[in-house]
């Protein structure tokens, strides 16, 4: 099916994009990689009057190191995040997660920022972004603002972004020397996560010195498994100790029953997958 008609605007700077959005008001949509938006438009689940394509805003694409942070431009594709040497070095968890998203074609087009703004609870990139305590840089009519990941994800398909705002980039603290793993449970090829667990750990002298754990699809937004992180601290990096800590994975979650799984099953998966993710991250 073909989308309903719309006006197409292709700005080349963030400022032009923001003013186009401001002028069009609620009737406008940002187009990034289009891998979620175009299917939505084609199924006529939305019919914006104006589409503002960020594809020509080259400043939004790419990864860099700046002021002690790893900065990922919102228009950087999943494929590029997956391959980027800086990401591998300072936030391996993101590379590990990006390679599980969708399929190669979708990863060539779909963007890091687009996946976060889309805010599908089954989307994989939000959990690691939350667990790594990222900051989102947003640009709007009254300038730029920074929102912590913990405040960015508000509800199903809803973020703290205002309609005239653009997500510019995402800034991560450096997790240099940490190891990481994303454990995704799905049923068939290219499917979304029933539950996913993002884990990054720093192992020192055989014990877990620091840990970050984020959960996908265990609520309307990604969940940081703080109780698991606490329980892991100082524990020996052994499968038994990790499995023990992983029992806390359901604390603070609010999963729903849907066609993919019911609540009990999701809770079971969260515990099992947390154990697997941390074990794999710790390399034991």
């Amino acid at each position: 099916m073909i989308p309903a008609p719309f006006d197409y605007i292709a700005p080349s700077t963030v400022a032009e994009a923001v003013s186009a959005l401001e002028e069009a008001g609620e009737d406008a949509k940002v187009l990034a990689g289009g891998q979620s938006l175009l299917p939505v438009l084609r199924m006529r689940m939305a019919d914006p009057g104006v589409v503002v394509d960020l594809g020509g805003v080259t400043a939004l694409r790419g990864v860099r190191e700046e002021g002690g942070s790893l900065v990922i431009g919102s228009m950087t594709t999943h494929h590029d995040v997956m391959r980027d040497p800086l990401v591998h070095h300072h936030a391996k968890l993101l590379a590990q997660t990006a390679r599980t998203v969708a399929d190669p074609q979708v990863r060539h087009r779909g963007t890091f920022g687009g996946a976060l703004v889309h805010a599908d609870p089954a989307g994989d990139l939000a959990a690691p972004t939350l667990a790594l305590d990222a900051e989102m840089v947003l640009a709007g009519p009254s300038g730029a603002r920074v929102v912590r990941a913990s405040e960015f994800f508000v509800d199903y398909f809803t973020t703290a972004l205002d309609p005239a705002e653009v997500l510019v980039e995402v800034r991560f603290p450096m997790f240099t020397g940490w190891s990481a793993h994303y454990e995704k449970f799905n049923r068939v090829a290219q499917a979304w996560s029933v539950v996913g667990v993002a884990a990054a750990v720093r192992v020192e002298a055989g014990a877990i010195a620091e840990a970050r754990v984020g959960l996908t699809n265990m609520g309307s937004t990604p969940v940081r498994a703080l109780a698991v992180e606490q329980a892991l601290l100082g524990r020996p990096a052994t499968p038994e100790a990790i499995r023990h800590a992983a029992r806390h994975a359901t604390e603070g979650t609010s999963p729903v029953s849907d066609a993919g799984a019911d609540i009990d099953y999701r809770e079971h998966l969260a515990q099992v997958l947390t154990g697997r993710a941390v074990t794999a991250a710790a390399g034991v």
Binding site: Y8, A10, L31, G34, Q35, L38, P39, R42, D53, G55, H79, D103, P104, Q105, V106, H108, R109
Partner: peptide, 21 residues
């Protein structure tokens, strides 16, 4: 994926790209 073509040498699903893009 039946509609896969290469855009600047990378595979994409051409039903999920606008001609304008």
């Amino acid at each position: 994926g039946a509609c896969t073509v290469h855009l600047d040498g990378q595979s994409v699903k051409s039903c999920s790209v606008l001609a304008a893009q």
